[in-house]
């Protein structure tokens, strides 16, 4: 798929077992190109979320290699991991905003990896970060919301803040774990469009690759450049959305009654 294109992320033989002898991920090997949206689909409990969380080690991989920007993330110590995480933005299904902080404070959370704790606590961020936060609020359609508390926003608005927070990091890779699963269909499309827009231009003219877990196959086909189908901890499909035939979906999800 990605041969000939620069590789942003390369996963080799990644295994994950939460309990011994019950693998959730089995020898996942995957290369992600430098741009474009990669959607991971598959039935619930098949390890999509675990896979994405292994990349920034919110979940510790059991074994394998995850090479990002020339270093194996699996081997990093705490400090190096922290520095690597600054380069990886993440968007969550339930937004995971700090509810009692304002929209602006949530956006600036994206800069916490770069700002000293005391300065962050005193809210003394570089003016450049603040300017960027305001312009990002504009981009995601939330101009004027800066001082509202996150818990006063609707689901769609929260996810926009979540995306803006991730982009504030100026990431080199964006992970999204079911970003639209808690949203209505119309808002889902808007959020996917927004993700597509920010990954083509993350603010400084840089395109970044995006990996998204999705359970809505149609949405995945519509927005992704590449689809990875997972079943039982393994990759069973890897290719263009067009190649995702009914027969293929049957392999991924099993059964066929739901396809009618």
């Amino acid at each position: 798929m990605t041969e000939g294109i620069a590789t942003a992320l390369s996963i080799r033989n990644l295994d994950k077992e939460y309990t011994r002898g019950k693998p959730v991920l089995r020898a996942i090997t995957l290369a992600i190109g430098a741009t474009g949206i990669t959607a991971i689909i598959g039935p619930s409990g098949t390890g999509k979320s675990t896979l994405i969380r292994c990349i920034n080690r919110l979940v510790e991989p059991t074994s394998g290699e995850i090479v990002f920007q020339g270093q194996d993330l699996v081997k990093l110590d705490r400090r190096a991991l922290r520095l690597a995480r600054r380069q990886i933005g993440m968007v969550f299904q339930e937004y995971n905003l700090v509810e009692r902080l304002t929209v602006m404070e949530n956006l600036l959370c994206g800069r916490l990896g770069y700002v000293a704790p005391l300065k962050a606590w005193l809210r003394k961020y570089p003016q450049g970060d603040i300017d960027r936060a305001f312009s990002l609020l504009d981009t995601v359609g939330l101009a004027g919301f800066a001082n509202q508390r996150a818990d006063s926003l609707s689901g769609g608005q929260r996810q926009r803040v979540g995306i803006a927070r991730a982009i504030m990091q100026e990431p080199k890779l964006l992970l999204a774990d079911e970003p639209t699963s808690s949203l209505d269909p119309k808002t889902s499309v808007e959020i996917m469009e927004l993700i597509g827009r920010v990954c083509r231009d993350s603010g400084r003219g840089n395109a970044i690759p995006v990996i998204i877990n999705m359970h809505d196959v149609e949405l995945a086909k519509r927005f992704a450049d590449r689809i990875i189908g997972m079943s039982d901890g393994r990759i069973v499909y890897d290719g263009a959305p067009a190649g995702l035939t009914d027969a293929m979906l049957k392999t991924v999800y099993g059964g066929e009654a739901w396809l009618q």
Partner: peptide, 11 residues
């Protein structure tokens, strides 16, 4: 979510 941004422990 805050941890995923690479924030230091105190932050």
């Amino acid at each position: 979510a805050v941890r995923a941004t690479g924030a230091p422990f105190m932050s």
